[in-house]
Simulated assay, not measured.
Amino acid sequence: MSFCATQDTASDVGKTTSMTSLDHYRNQYRAALLDDCIPFWEKHCPDRDYGGYFTCLDRDGTVYDTEKFMWMQWRIVWMFSELCSKLGTRTEWLDIARLGYDFLTTHGKDDKGRYYFALSREGRPTMAPYSVYSDCFAVMGAAAYYRVSGDEAARREALRAYNSYLSREHRPKGEWTKELEGRPPMRKLGFYMMKANLLAVLEECLSDPTFRAEALATVRYVLGTFWNPDMKVMFEFVRADGSFDLESMQGRHLTPGHALEAMWFIMNSAYRAGETQLVERAADVVRATLDFGWDPEYGGIYYFMDALGKPHVELQWNMKLWWVHNEALVATAMAHQLTGREEFA
């Protein structure tokens, strides 16, 4: 979603100085995207023989593994479609998006319509469709491709994949679920934050405002269920009844990058609906997440955390991952533009 770069808001008044001071960052990121990142992927990722994309690429573009992972495949469809939508259609970009869309819709689903986690280079399934997020990214990619191609089959596929995603709400991993009846069921932030984003994508790409009411309901559900206003943290899991579980490692588990990502999804939907109070609430969560998740000694945002500061089960909990900081950049830039609060500049 890129409305912040293309639409004015009421909060723009009086921010000329601060936005001007951020111009060099905008120019830096734009140049990195269009002069470095996109040309690299244009050149090295398309598989012209079988379709889809090579994604295990060394810095020189050398392919070191040909397996095709669904999350990344559909994200590339989305990315090149979005480039066409936001920056103007280029034949080479649209061709790359089509290369992935055709490959994935031909080879990517099991007999129940669920997208596999991974395929071989030729399109044979290599990993079962245990991840609901394969369907999630299919929604985004197909919807974005429909907007720039006008292909009605892509519109239908976006809606079909969305319904598949919804059908897996209570058991996202299906028959590949490891947990047994001895572990109480939990609701996961990831499912609902992505649902909010999918509804916004469908509204925008399919030009269908009927998705807005459900998007706002989902936004309110995320803020009202996973955000703990007393502890000022966004929990990754809550019990089935919506209560917080501070007795288990799973219940105390926090993912600051997810919280930041969820908040820019929420600000996006709230802004589109004119819900300024929701925008402010989400901005407050961004601030609190940065305060809690920031490493005060070395800087950067932790990958995983425990709500009570207990030892974390994940050995990589204190790593500083690239994607987490990208989400922080998006969230703070959006919060700054939509609220005018200088703390986000």
Rank of each mutant, 00 (worst) to 15 (best):
Thr9Lys: 00
Val13Leu: 14
Leu22Asp: 04
Arg26Lys: 12
Ala31Pro: 03
Ala31Trp: 10
Ala32Ser: 12
Leu34Trp: 13
Asp35Asn: 15
Cys37Pro: 01
Ile38Arg: 08
Trp41Gln: 03
Trp41Ser: 04
Pro46Thr: 05
Asp49Pro: 01
Tyr50Cys: 08
Gly51Ser: 06
Thr55His: 06
Thr55Asp: 03
Leu57Gln: 01
Phe69Val: 02
Trp71Cys: 01
Met72Val: 14
Met79Phe: 09
Cys84Trp: 05
Cys84Glu: 09
Lys86Phe: 07
Leu87Pro: 00
Gly88Gln: 10
Trp93Glu: 11
Asp95Val: 02
Leu99Pro: 07
Gly100Val: 03
Gly100Ser: 08
Asp102Asn: 13
Lys112Glu: 14
Phe117Pro: 00
Gly123Asp: 04
Thr126Glu: 14
Tyr130Met: 08
Tyr133Glu: 09
Met140Asp: 13
Gly141Val: 02
Gly141Trp: 07
Gly141Met: 02
Ala144Met: 01
Ser149Ile: 04
Ala153His: 13
Arg155Phe: 07
Arg156Trp: 13
Arg156Phe: 12
Ala161Arg: 07
Tyr162Trp: 14
Ser167Asn: 15
Glu169Ile: 09
Arg171Met: 14
Pro172His: 09
Glu175Arg: 07
Thr177Asp: 15
Leu180Met: 11
Glu181Thr: 11
Pro184Trp: 00
Pro185Ser: 12
Arg187Gln: 15
Leu189Glu: 09
Gly190Met: 09
Lys195Ala: 11
Ala196Pro: 08
Asn197Pro: 03
Leu199Ala: 02
Cys205Tyr: 03
Ser207Met: 03
Phe211Ile: 01
Arg212Pro: 01
Ala217Tyr: 14
Ala217His: 15
Tyr221Asn: 11
Tyr221Pro: 08
Thr225His: 08
Phe226Leu: 04
Met231His: 14
Glu236Arg: 00
Val238Ala: 09
Arg239Gly: 13
Gly242Pro: 12
Gly242Phe: 11
Ser243Lys: 08
Ser248Arg: 04
Arg252Asn: 02
Ala259Thr: 00
Ala259Cys: 03
Leu260Arg: 01
Ala262Ile: 04
Met263Gly: 00
Met267Pro: 05
Met267Glu: 12
Ser269Tyr: 04
Ser269Gln: 12
Tyr271His: 14
Glu275Ala: 10
Val279Ala: 02
Glu280Phe: 02
Glu280Thr: 06
Ala282Arg: 07
Ala283Trp: 04
Thr289Asn: 10
Thr289Pro: 10
Asp291Gln: 03
Gly293Tyr: 06
Gly300Trp: 06
Gly300Ile: 07
Tyr303Phe: 13
Phe304Lys: 00
Met305Leu: 15
Leu308Cys: 02
Val313Gln: 13
Gln316Tyr: 06
Trp322Glu: 07
Leu329Pro: 06
Ala333Met: 05
Ala335Val: 04
Leu338Glu: 13
Arg341Gln: 09
Glu342Asp: 08
Glu342Ile: 04
Phe344Gly: 06
Ala345Phe: 08
